[in-house]
């Protein structure tokens, strides 16, 4: 019985990891939008992280780490640090919000909070790396508005695909 559970877990991580990386890769093909810092993306791969957060904290962080390493290997150290800092904050928020039953925040609210955390993490990294704290005021407003939009999307998509992802999990 135990081996089955572990295998199931590994398989699930594998599938979800691949999904997250595929979404990340597809998003990286989107050209940089004016007004937003290069690298700002809809964050669809976060849907995967958020789903994993509801099933296990360690698993969620594993996916986050996987995305960061992928970013590092394909786009360089700066990309890795940005992905890691944004991912850590966002996944932590997701874990807290999704594992606790005590609040009335819906999926979209969770999506927005995670997106905002992700962007905050990345902004902090960007400021530290470039040594310009003024980036917060420069990119801040637009990034936050963008986060609301992407949060809406990821939250809504998450709610919609949970049944499907659950089915995959159960079929393993």
């Amino acid at each position: 019985m135990e081996t089955n559970k572990n295998t199931k877990r590994v398989a699930m991580l594998g599938i979800m990891g691949a999904l997250a990386l595929a979404l990340s890769f597809l998003e990286s093909l989107i050209p940089a939008l004016p007004g937003l810092p290069p690298g700002a993306k809809p964050g669809l791969s976060n849907i995967v992280t958020m789903f994993m957060a509801s099933s296990g904290i360690a698993d969620a962080f594993f996916i986050t780490a996987l995305k960061a390493v992928f970013a590092g290997v394909t786009r360089g150290t700066t990309a890795m640090l940005m992905s890691a800092s944004g991912g850590l904050l966002s996944t932590a928020a997701a874990c807290i919000l999704l594992c606790s039953k005590k609040h009335s925040i819906g999926y979209i609210g969770i999506g927005i909070i995670c997106a905002v955390c992700h962007n905050i993490g990345q902004l902090i990294s960007a400021c530290l790396i470039s040594g310009t704290p003024s980036l917060i005021f420069g990119y801040g407003p637009l990034l936050l508005i963008f986060a609301v939009a992407t949060g809406f999307v990821t939250g809504a998509v998450l709610k919609a695909v949970i049944p499907a992802l659950d089915r995959i999990s159960k079929s393993l």
Binding site: L81, A84, S85, S125, L128, I129, G131
Partner: peptide, 10 residues
Amino acid sequence: VISIVLADFA
């Protein structure tokens, strides 16, 4: 690890 790498990077 991330803090160390960030600090070194910075």
